[in-house]
């Protein structure tokens, strides 16, 4: 139910005299918590970040992060704290170390390889002689061909 009727809206406007509430903003510690918790993985969830997770363990871990933020611990130290205890598994972003080397290098290596092969093969094929009869088409016919 996301949209109420206009009538209900009017009624509610009439009784909209809830006292002057505060105009709130996200607390700065919460912002830091958001950033850090988004970089950690919930150990008991199926691939959720700590920030998104509602699991009990995740809540406790977020409380720990909150306490550490209040104590002035740096972001990296907080991440290291959890990595020491739960291993690489708990980091959302694979680090640039030996465990993940293949992961980062492979896609780009493959892309470069493919492009190099493309260039080599294409260049060799453009030396191939033409078939004898080859009809010309006007540019418009070319453009408007079925793709």
């Amino acid at each position: 139910m996301r949209f109420l009727s206009a009538f209900l809206l009017c009624t509610l406007m009439l009784i909209n005299c809830v006292g002057a509430g505060e105009l709130l903003n996200e607390a700065p510690n919460d912002t830091r918590l958001k950033i850090i918790a988004s970089q950690l993985r919930c150990p008991v969830c199926q691939g959720e970040s700590l920030f998104d997770s509602h699991a009990a363990l995740a809540k406790e871990m977020k409380l720990i992060i909150r306490e550490k933020i209040a104590n002035g611990v740096s972001d990296q130290d907080i991440l290291d704290f959890f990595q020491q205890r739960y291993g690489n598994y708990v980091l959302m972003r694979p680090a640039f170390n030996s465990t993940y080397a293949l992961l980062w290098i492979a896609p780009f290596a493959f892309m470069f390889l493919a492009i190099i092969i493309f260039i080599i093969k294409w260049r060799s094929h453009s030396q191939t002689p033409l078939p004898a009869d080859h009809q010309q088409q006007s540019p418009e016919q070319q453009q408007n061909s079925p793709n």
Partner: peptide, 30 residues
Amino acid sequence: CAAGTVFLGTLYPLIAEVITGAKVTVAAPY
């Protein structure tokens, strides 16, 4: 290349675990 990367990233935890026994996470940031 995109398909291959998704493939690699999705199966990497399995590959890493079979070869080294380590448990890794490959998620949205990657």
